Simulated scan of single mutants.
Amino acid sequence: METMLDYINEEEATLKNILAKFTLKKDVNFKKINNLLILATGSSYNACLAAKVTLEKFAAISVTIEEPYNFNHYGRISDGIDAVLAVSQSGKSASTIDAIAKLKKEGLFTFALTSDVTSPIAEAVDEVLDLEMGIEKVGFVTKGYVTTVLQLFLLGLTIADNKGALLPEQIDFYRSELKKVISEIPNVIAKTNDFFAVHEASFKLGTRFIAIGYGPNWGTAKEFETKFTETVRKPSQGFELEAYMHGPYLEANSEHLVFFIETKSVNRARSQALKTYMAPYVGQALTITTQAAENATELGLEVECDELLSALLLVIPFQILAYKIATAKGIDLNQRIFDDFDRVLKSKV
């Protein structure tokens, strides 16, 4: 039976294959995009949040991300929106399908990013983009998450090419950088396994898990929240750096295990200052960084990586830790629970 780890170990090959096959596509609809609305939920939403800064930077556009159910019932489409992207790995998210159908009636260009190009969501849009990663059979998505992030990066380069927002040599540079980042995945996996072995005892006893990130890795922190909630099944929450400083820190106590997600950035010093302050008040304060580790509390990936691309790598340690901590706690992730949930609640079609 396939597990989360099986799909994590496929990530490097899958992303390399996608990047190798990627070609810039001329599309008059992409050339017209200035303000993009993205509809997504769950891990797809988190991946969009992680890619948002990069997509905006590459394509010189503004991106708004909405939860489709709430938007469909209570939202209002801005006059400035000129395209809508639906992101659904399965292509069966009922709320996303309903929302995209409603927006299509407004005369907007709609397209979807999905792993099933024959799915209901593919039939509801004007154009379909294939995630190119096959069908992920394990419910706790991992390979699908990083694939979504990469495909959104590549969408940014495609829109940039259509709009003339990046020079050809700039596009080539980012493609080369992505190739280097993806090649680091085996090292990231190995370093994470070693880090888990050092901290296994405290991870096993943990009852409250928190991650704090900034920039693109606010999305990483939110995916941490999703993965740990699904697998470790203990209270878990992901925060944007400054947001944590405006109230959530007040609940800190010795039962909290806090991860700080860091990249080479102007915000790194603020994150480090927060860790230094919070360390005496929590059970453990740990860092996952693209830089080298300075002590045993840090998982240093030692990757020279542009912050714009860092979310592709920094999520992988959390995917591995989610599986390993759940297993250490005796949780059998192969044992399905709430098996009738989607059928009863009609969350998928």
Rank of each mutant, 00 (worst) to 15 (best):
M4P: 10
E10I: 04
T14L: 10
L19T: 10
L19E: 09
K21W: 01
F30T: 07
F30S: 01
I38E: 04
S44E: 11
A51R: 06
T54E: 02
E56I: 06
E56Y: 04
T64K: 06
T64W: 02
I65H: 05
E66M: 13
Y69T: 12
G75Q: 03
R76Y: 09
D79V: 11
D82H: 07
D82W: 09
A83P: 06
V87D: 00
Q89D: 08
S90V: 06
A94V: 14
T96G: 04
K102W: 01
K102V: 13
G107S: 11
G107E: 09
T110S: 09
F111W: 12
F111N: 03
A112P: 04
T114F: 10
S115D: 01
T118D: 15
S119L: 08
E123P: 00
D126M: 10
V128K: 03
V146W: 00
V149E: 01
Q151K: 15
L152N: 01
L154M: 12
L157K: 03
L157H: 05
I159E: 00
D161Q: 14
K163I: 13
A165K: 02
Q170L: 12
I171N: 04
R175C: 15
S176A: 15
S176W: 02
S176R: 00
I182F: 05
I182T: 04
S183V: 08
I185S: 08
N187I: 12
I189L: 11
F195I: 12
V198A: 08
E200A: 15
S202G: 00
F203Y: 10
L205F: 01
T207P: 02
R208P: 02
I210H: 05
I210A: 03
Y214N: 14
E230H: 09
V232F: 01
Q237Y: 10
M245H: 03
H246V: 11
Y249R: 12
A252Y: 07
E255C: 04
H256K: 13
F260V: 07
K264M: 12
S265M: 11
V266G: 15
R268N: 13
A269Y: 01
R270V: 12
R270T: 12
Q272W: 02
A273N: 12
K275F: 10
Y277M: 15
M278G: 02
M278E: 10
V282Y: 07
A285F: 11
L286H: 00
A292E: 14
E294R: 15
A296G: 00
L299Q: 00
G300A: 13
G300Y: 05
L301N: 00
E302F: 03
V303K: 01
E307K: 08
L308C: 05
L309E: 02
S310Y: 02
S310L: 07
L312A: 11
Q319W: 04
L321E: 03
A326L: 09
A328Y: 05
L333A: 07
F338N: 15
D340W: 03
R343W: 04
